[in-house]
Simulated scan of single mutants.
Amino acid sequence: MTSVRCPWCLSTPEYIDYHDKEWGKVVKDDQTLFECIVLESAQAGLSWITILRKREGYRRLFHQFDPEKVALMNEQDVERLLEDASIVRHRGKIEATINNAKIFLKIAEEFGSFSDYYWAFSDHKVLANPVTSMADVPAKTELSERIAKDMKKRGFRFFGATTCYAFMQATGMVNDHLLDCIARSD
């Protein structure tokens, strides 16, 4: 019997590993949520495999995704990062990462944690979609639009409704694994 996986992950070993071990698993740890925000925002307009292959560069250059350290980065850091090919060298995305770290910390302070703020949008529940083919998976939803709008109002950048939906999938708020996928758990 052949194991069934979501078809989007079948093209590379990196995708399969990410799919099997991370994608769609519930994330409530603030630092991991921040990592997902950074990576999903960096992905805008690019392929996810590009970001996965640069993940270690992001990890190294953005202080292991510690939002407190990233929030302290300055223009000199931006200029240095623009020269480092181990990440996507896009000024707007680099500056957004630093900006978003500051906003992330404000939200965490206001709500007790970023996780509490974020997961309240789904009433702290996983939204398990009955996905039988990738055609069933939307690019964005009313909920991703609502979350993205609130985050934008608070000052987030490079985080629209489509990026937000990918974030929701990655962090397990939405379960979009195929119903017969080996990584699906309901």
Results as ranks from 00 to 15, higher is better:
Ile103Cys: 03
Gln64Trp: 07
Lys54Val: 06
Phe158Tyr: 14
Ser185Val: 12
Gly92Asn: 08
Arg89Asp: 05
Arg91Thr: 01
Ile49Arg: 13
Lys102Arg: 15
Ala170Tyr: 05
Gln31Tyr: 11
Val38Leu: 12
Arg154Gly: 03
Val4Asn: 13
Ser11Thr: 13
Trp119Ser: 00
Met151His: 05
Glu40Met: 11
Phe62Ser: 03
Val78Phe: 02
Thr97Asp: 07
Thr132Phe: 09
Asp123Pro: 02
Leu179Val: 10
Ala183His: 05
Asp30Val: 00
Ala71Asn: 10
Ala71Tyr: 02
Glu75Tyr: 03
Ala44Ser: 14
Ser122Cys: 09
Phe104Tyr: 09
Ala42Val: 06
Thr171Met: 01
Pro130Ile: 03
Ala120Cys: 06
Cys9Asn: 09
Asp84Gly: 02
Leu10Tyr: 04
Leu10Gly: 13
Ala85Leu: 10
Trp48Gln: 13
Ala139Asn: 09
Arg154Pro: 04
Asn175Asp: 15
Phe167Ala: 00
Thr171Gly: 00
Ser122Gly: 05
Arg154Met: 05
Trp119Val: 00
Lys140Gln: 14
Ala120Trp: 01
Ser41Lys: 07
Pro7Tyr: 07
Leu52Asn: 08
Cys36Ser: 14
Asn100Val: 05
Val4Lys: 14
Asp176Trp: 05
Ala161Gly: 10
Leu105Cys: 10
Ser115Asn: 11
Ala44Val: 14
